[in-house]
Protein backbone atom coordinates (compact mmCIF):
# COMPACT_ATOMS: atom_id res chain seq x y z
CA UNK A 1 0.00 0.00 0.00
CA UNK A 2 2.90 2.34 0.78
CA UNK A 3 4.39 1.52 -2.58
CA UNK A 4 1.09 2.34 -4.29
CA UNK A 5 0.94 5.63 -2.38
CA UNK A 6 4.49 6.37 -3.52
CA UNK A 7 3.56 5.63 -7.14
CA UNK A 8 0.44 7.78 -6.94
CA UNK A 9 2.38 10.58 -5.23
CA UNK A 10 4.96 10.49 -7.99
CA UNK A 11 2.31 10.73 -10.71
CA UNK A 12 0.61 13.64 -8.96
CA UNK A 13 3.92 15.38 -8.40
CA UNK A 14 4.84 15.00 -12.06
CA UNK A 15 1.44 16.33 -13.12
CA UNK A 16 1.80 19.32 -10.82
CA UNK A 17 5.36 20.07 -11.97
CA UNK A 18 4.11 20.12 -15.55
CA UNK A 19 0.60 21.52 -15.23
CA UNK A 20 0.33 22.19 -18.96
CA UNK A 21 -1.28 18.83 -19.75
CA UNK A 22 -4.30 19.20 -17.50
CA UNK A 23 -4.66 22.91 -18.30
CA UNK A 24 -4.61 22.15 -22.03
CA UNK A 25 -7.30 19.53 -21.57
CA UNK A 26 -9.57 21.93 -19.71
CA UNK A 27 -9.01 24.70 -22.26
CA UNK A 28 -9.78 22.28 -25.08
CA UNK A 29 -12.96 21.24 -23.26
CA UNK A 30 -14.12 24.84 -22.88
CA UNK A 31 -13.26 25.77 -26.43
CA UNK A 32 -14.87 22.69 -27.98
CA UNK A 33 -18.08 23.33 -26.03
CA UNK A 34 -18.34 27.02 -26.92
CA UNK A 35 -17.76 26.29 -30.62
CA UNK A 36 -21.15 24.56 -30.80
CA UNK A 37 -23.30 27.70 -30.52
CA UNK A 38 -21.37 29.11 -33.48
CA UNK A 39 -22.13 25.94 -35.41
CA UNK A 40 -25.81 25.46 -34.61
CA UNK A 41 -26.90 29.02 -33.82
CA UNK A 42 -27.67 30.71 -30.52
CA UNK A 43 -31.32 29.66 -29.98
CA UNK A 44 -31.62 28.90 -26.29
CA UNK A 45 -33.99 25.95 -26.76
CA UNK A 46 -31.75 24.16 -29.20
CA UNK A 47 -28.65 24.73 -27.07
CA UNK A 48 -30.42 23.53 -23.93
CA UNK A 49 -31.53 20.41 -25.82
CA UNK A 50 -28.02 19.46 -26.98
CA UNK A 51 -26.04 20.80 -23.98
CA UNK A 52 -25.67 17.47 -22.16
CA UNK A 53 -24.46 15.65 -25.23
CA UNK A 54 -22.14 18.45 -26.29
CA UNK A 55 -20.52 18.65 -22.87
CA UNK A 56 -20.06 14.90 -22.68
CA UNK A 57 -18.54 14.64 -26.15
CA UNK A 58 -16.23 17.59 -25.49
CA UNK A 59 -15.17 16.11 -22.14
CA UNK A 60 -14.40 12.72 -23.71
CA UNK A 61 -12.28 14.34 -26.41
CA UNK A 62 -10.50 16.55 -23.88
CA UNK A 63 -9.73 13.64 -21.56
CA UNK A 64 -7.97 11.86 -24.44
CA UNK A 65 -5.44 14.69 -24.72
CA UNK A 66 -3.70 14.13 -21.41
CA UNK A 67 -3.74 10.32 -21.44
CA UNK A 68 -0.68 9.74 -23.54
CA UNK A 69 2.01 11.55 -21.59
CA UNK A 70 2.01 9.66 -18.26
CA UNK A 71 2.46 6.40 -20.16
CA UNK A 72 4.63 7.48 -23.06
CA UNK A 73 6.92 9.55 -20.81
CA UNK A 74 7.79 6.56 -18.64
CA UNK A 75 8.16 4.37 -21.72
CA UNK A 76 10.57 6.66 -23.51
CA UNK A 77 12.84 7.48 -20.58
CA UNK A 78 13.14 3.89 -19.36
CA UNK A 79 11.10 4.32 -16.18
CA UNK A 80 8.60 1.64 -17.18
CA UNK A 81 11.34 -0.98 -17.34
CA UNK A 82 12.30 -0.25 -13.77
CA UNK A 83 8.67 0.07 -12.67
CA UNK A 84 7.93 -3.32 -14.22
CA UNK A 85 10.81 -4.75 -12.17
CA UNK A 86 9.75 -3.16 -8.90
CA UNK A 87 8.03 -5.09 -6.11
CA UNK A 88 4.82 -3.15 -6.81
CA UNK A 89 2.65 -5.12 -9.25
CA UNK A 90 2.58 -3.48 -12.67
CA UNK A 91 -1.22 -3.43 -12.63
CA UNK A 92 -1.04 -1.21 -9.53
CA UNK A 93 1.56 1.01 -11.19
CA UNK A 94 -0.78 1.65 -14.12
CA UNK A 95 -3.73 1.93 -11.72
CA UNK A 96 -1.85 4.77 -10.01
CA UNK A 97 -1.43 6.45 -13.39
CA UNK A 98 -5.14 6.07 -14.20
CA UNK A 99 -6.14 7.42 -10.79
CA UNK A 100 -3.73 10.35 -11.19
CA UNK A 101 -5.19 11.08 -14.63
CA UNK A 102 -8.67 11.11 -13.14
CA UNK A 103 -7.61 13.41 -10.30
CA UNK A 104 -5.60 15.85 -12.39
CA UNK A 105 -7.61 15.94 -15.63
CA UNK A 106 -11.11 14.60 -15.11
CA UNK A 107 -11.82 16.39 -11.83
CA UNK A 108 -11.02 19.78 -13.42
CA UNK A 109 -13.28 18.83 -16.34
CA UNK A 110 -16.07 17.93 -13.93
CA UNK A 111 -15.53 21.22 -12.14
CA UNK A 112 -15.65 23.20 -15.38
CA UNK A 113 -18.76 21.48 -16.73
CA UNK A 114 -21.44 23.38 -14.71
CA UNK A 115 -19.98 26.69 -15.87
CA UNK A 116 -20.16 25.59 -19.48
CA UNK A 117 -23.66 24.24 -18.87
CA UNK A 118 -24.58 27.73 -17.73
CA UNK A 119 -23.35 29.14 -21.04
CA UNK A 120 -25.43 26.58 -22.93
CA UNK A 121 -28.40 27.25 -20.67
CA UNK A 122 -28.90 23.72 -19.47
CA UNK A 123 -32.28 23.30 -17.82
CA UNK A 124 -32.65 23.90 -14.09
CA UNK A 125 -32.56 20.34 -12.78
CA UNK A 126 -29.67 19.29 -14.96
CA UNK A 127 -26.70 20.82 -13.18
CA UNK A 128 -26.46 18.44 -10.27
CA UNK A 129 -27.10 15.44 -12.50
CA UNK A 130 -24.42 16.66 -14.92
CA UNK A 131 -21.79 16.90 -12.19
CA UNK A 132 -22.81 13.57 -10.68
CA UNK A 133 -22.84 11.79 -14.04
CA UNK A 134 -19.48 13.25 -15.03
CA UNK A 135 -17.97 12.35 -11.68
CA UNK A 136 -19.18 8.74 -12.00
CA UNK A 137 -18.53 8.38 -15.72
CA UNK A 138 -15.06 9.87 -16.04
CA UNK A 139 -13.30 7.13 -14.00
CA UNK A 140 -14.24 4.73 -16.80
CA UNK A 141 -12.74 7.18 -19.28
CA UNK A 142 -9.43 7.25 -17.38
CA UNK A 143 -9.43 3.47 -16.99
CA UNK A 144 -10.23 2.50 -20.59
CA UNK A 145 -8.03 5.36 -21.80
CA UNK A 146 -5.17 3.93 -19.76
CA UNK A 147 -5.50 0.66 -21.66
CA UNK A 148 -5.40 2.55 -24.95
CA UNK A 149 -2.37 4.57 -23.87
CA UNK A 150 -0.53 1.38 -22.92
CA UNK A 151 -1.46 -0.29 -26.21
CA UNK A 152 -0.15 2.59 -28.32
CA UNK A 153 3.24 2.89 -26.55
CA UNK A 154 5.84 3.30 -29.25
CA UNK A 155 3.27 3.22 -32.07
CA UNK A 156 3.42 5.52 -35.05
CA UNK A 157 0.89 8.35 -34.65
CA UNK A 158 0.29 7.11 -31.11
CA UNK A 159 -1.78 10.05 -29.90
CA UNK A 160 -4.39 10.04 -32.66
CA UNK A 161 -4.46 6.28 -32.67
CA UNK A 162 -5.22 6.32 -28.95
CA UNK A 163 -8.38 8.35 -29.54
CA UNK A 164 -9.47 6.13 -32.42
CA UNK A 165 -9.09 3.01 -30.29
CA UNK A 166 -10.67 4.34 -27.12
CA UNK A 167 -13.58 6.53 -28.22
CA UNK A 168 -15.73 3.73 -29.70
CA UNK A 169 -15.33 1.84 -26.43
CA UNK A 170 -16.62 4.86 -24.52
CA UNK A 171 -19.96 5.03 -26.34
CA UNK A 172 -21.81 3.40 -23.38
CA UNK A 173 -20.44 6.03 -20.97
CA UNK A 174 -21.57 8.77 -23.34
CA UNK A 175 -25.04 7.25 -23.71
CA UNK A 176 -25.72 6.86 -20.00
CA UNK A 177 -23.92 10.06 -19.01
CA UNK A 178 -25.97 12.22 -21.36
CA UNK A 179 -29.17 10.29 -20.60
CA UNK A 180 -28.79 10.99 -16.90
CA UNK A 181 -28.76 14.73 -17.54
CA UNK A 182 -31.68 14.53 -19.97
CA UNK A 183 -33.67 12.53 -17.44
CA UNK A 184 -33.01 15.09 -14.71
CA UNK A 185 -34.15 17.94 -16.96
CA UNK A 186 -37.30 16.01 -17.85
CA UNK A 187 -37.99 15.46 -14.16
CA UNK A 188 -37.45 11.70 -14.38
CA UNK A 189 -35.44 9.67 -11.87
CA UNK A 190 -31.70 9.83 -12.46
CA UNK A 191 -30.63 7.17 -10.04
CA UNK A 192 -30.56 4.17 -12.37
CA UNK A 193 -28.44 6.01 -14.93
CA UNK A 194 -25.94 6.94 -12.27
CA UNK A 195 -25.91 3.37 -11.01
CA UNK A 196 -25.16 2.05 -14.50
CA UNK A 197 -22.30 4.57 -14.77
CA UNK A 198 -20.99 3.46 -11.38
CA UNK A 199 -21.29 -0.19 -12.38
CA UNK A 200 -19.30 0.47 -15.54
CA UNK A 201 -16.63 2.27 -13.52
CA UNK A 202 -16.39 -0.65 -11.10
CA UNK A 203 -16.17 -3.24 -13.85
CA UNK A 204 -13.56 -1.13 -15.66
CA UNK A 205 -11.51 -0.71 -12.48
CA UNK A 206 -11.43 -4.47 -12.08
CA UNK A 207 -10.39 -5.24 -15.67
CA UNK A 208 -8.55 -2.24 -17.10
CA UNK A 209 -5.46 -2.06 -14.84
CA UNK A 210 -4.87 -5.70 -15.59
CA UNK A 211 -5.23 -5.27 -19.38
CA UNK A 212 -3.12 -2.12 -19.31
CA UNK A 213 -0.36 -3.86 -17.37
CA UNK A 214 -0.38 -6.70 -19.91
CA UNK A 215 -0.08 -4.14 -22.69
CA UNK A 216 2.84 -2.38 -20.97
CA UNK A 217 4.60 -5.67 -20.30
CA UNK A 218 4.45 -6.70 -23.93
CA UNK A 219 5.57 -3.23 -25.01
CA UNK A 220 8.72 -3.65 -22.91
CA UNK A 221 9.70 -6.95 -24.52
Amino acid sequence: MNAFAAALGRELRLAIREPGEAATAVMFFVLAAILFPFGVGPEANLLARIAAGVLWVAALLAAMLSLERPFLGDYEDGNFEVLALSPLALSLVVAAKMLAHWLTTCIPLVAASPLLALLLDLGGGGYLALVAAMALGTPTVSLIGGVGAALTLGARRGGVLLSILVLPLLVPVLIFGAAAVDAAIAGLPVRQHLMVLAAMALAASALCPWASAAAVRQALE
Binding site: A3, A6, A7, R10, R13, E18, D77, G78, V82, S86
Partner: peptide
Amino acid sequence: LDAVKLALTVAENLRFWAALR
Protein backbone atom coordinates in the same frame (compact mmCIF):
# COMPACT_ATOMS: atom_id res chain seq x y z
CA LEU B 1 17.95 4.38 -20.58
CA ASP B 2 18.59 6.12 -17.31
CA ALA B 3 15.03 5.94 -15.95
CA VAL B 4 15.39 9.44 -14.50
CA LYS B 5 12.36 11.72 -14.20
CA LEU B 6 13.63 15.13 -15.25
CA ALA B 7 10.88 17.07 -13.47
CA LEU B 8 11.76 15.53 -10.10
CA THR B 9 14.80 16.44 -8.05
CA VAL B 10 17.72 14.06 -7.67
CA ALA B 11 16.63 13.15 -4.16
CA GLU B 12 12.97 12.72 -5.17
CA ASN B 13 13.99 10.34 -7.93
CA LEU B 14 15.96 8.22 -5.49
CA ARG B 15 13.38 8.44 -2.74
CA PHE B 16 10.66 7.13 -5.03
CA TRP B 17 12.61 4.06 -6.09
CA ALA B 18 13.60 3.39 -2.51
CA ALA B 19 10.00 3.83 -1.32
CA LEU B 20 8.82 1.21 -3.83
CA ARG B 21 11.12 -1.22 -2.06
